[in-house]
């Protein structure tokens, strides 16, 4: 039986991406993403307004924090510790699960493309949706906050580094949670336990456990000082040690590729029984 030419793996993934990206962007999760990403934007606008009105914004021990320091704090608190892992868990675990729940997965799995390419296409759609929402919000926060006793030009390199590390964070967390989504029955719960349980605990202990987290390597890319704003972060600060930049990039790339591959293989082999 002569088969027509199959689209290649990446080409198949790109076609799934085309099909999925607008659906993903207009899904219910986008409202959640808008809330998560909109909060720091609104806060930064509010801070800027207070500053313009002459209110003492972020005065510590009589010293007023400069805009770049506040921006660094927001990158840590809002984005690195919350937005990136949370978006990763909510989107990453649902790459295939949403299609299964909506019962539209049948249309994708009865086409002449590998199931793994469907996952890859959905993953790329997740990246597009999150990167193009999160990164602009960071830029808005930067534009609002940094000019308060700081200069936009002077902190620009840090902004580029921040955007880069947040995009990497979305990519790596997305891949990790894609595996969890493909392998576990309650992926959202497992994902939340991973980011708010395992990662927090592992980072707070001395030793090698922290090497089994994504946050350990991501933190090495952050150009701002780590804040000690909570007890957990204070403890984490005590045992804080960063891998070198090349080591962090190597391990983040390794985690990304291996987990994405593992997720694709899991989807290839899994049966999806739709609820009747």
């Amino acid at each position: 039986m002569a088969d027509p030419k199959s689209p290649g793996y990446v080409s198949s993934a790109m076609r799934v991406f085309d099909l999925s990206v607008s659906e993903m962007l207009w899904s219910r999760r986008t409202i959640f993403m808008a809330l998560v990403v909109g909060a720091p934007v609104l806060i930064s606008m509010f801070l800027r307004l207070l500053d313009a009105l002459g209110a003492p914004v972020f005065r510590v021990n009589g010293m007023q924090m400069a805009g770049p320091a506040i921006f660094g704090l927001m990158i840590w608190v809002f984005y690195l510790r919350f937005t990136i892992p949370v978006l990763g868990v909510f989107y990453g675990t649902s790459l295939i699960a949403d299609e299964v729940e909506d019962k539209t997965i049948t249309y994708l799995f009865t086409r002449p493309i590998p199931k793994g390419a469907v996952l890859l296409g959905k993953y790329l759609a997740y990246m597009a949706c999150t990167v193009f929402v999160v990164l602009p919000s960071v830029v808005i926060v930067y534009l609002c906050i940094v000019p308060m006793r700081g200069s936009l030009g002077g902190s620009f390199i840090d902004l580029v580094k921040d955007l880069f590390l947040l995009a990497i964070g979305l990519a790596v967390y997305g891949a990790v949670f894609a595996v969890i989504g493909a392998r576990f029955k309650r992926p959202l719960l497992v994902g939340l336990i991973f980011i708010f349980g395992w990662e927090q605990m592992a980072l707070a202990f001395p030793g090698y456990l922290k090497k089994f987290t994504v946050a350990y390597y991501l933190q090495a890319l952050v150009p701002h000082a780590m804040p000690n704003d909570t007890v957990v972060s204070l403890i984490q600060g005590i045992f804080h040690e960063n891998p070198s930049l090349p080591e962090a990039l190597f391990w983040l790339s390794a985690i990304l590729l291996s987990f994405l591959w593992f997720a694709a293989v899991s989807v290839e082999r899994k049966e999806y029984v739709l609820e009747q």
């Binding site: 039986m1 088969d3 027509p4 199959s6 099909l19 607008s22 659906e23 207009w26 909506d102 019962k103 539209t104 049948t106 249309y107 009865t110 086409r111 002449p112 493309i113 590998p114 199931k115 739709l274």
Partner: peptide, 20 residues
């Protein structure tokens, strides 16, 4: 997957990408 060049399937479920 190559077999799907020759097979078309119309599932029972009433599920679509509604916005398309």
């Amino acid at each position: 997957p190559k077999i799907y060049f020759h097979v078309g399937f119309c599932p029972e479920q009433d599920a679509f990408y509604e916005r398309m």
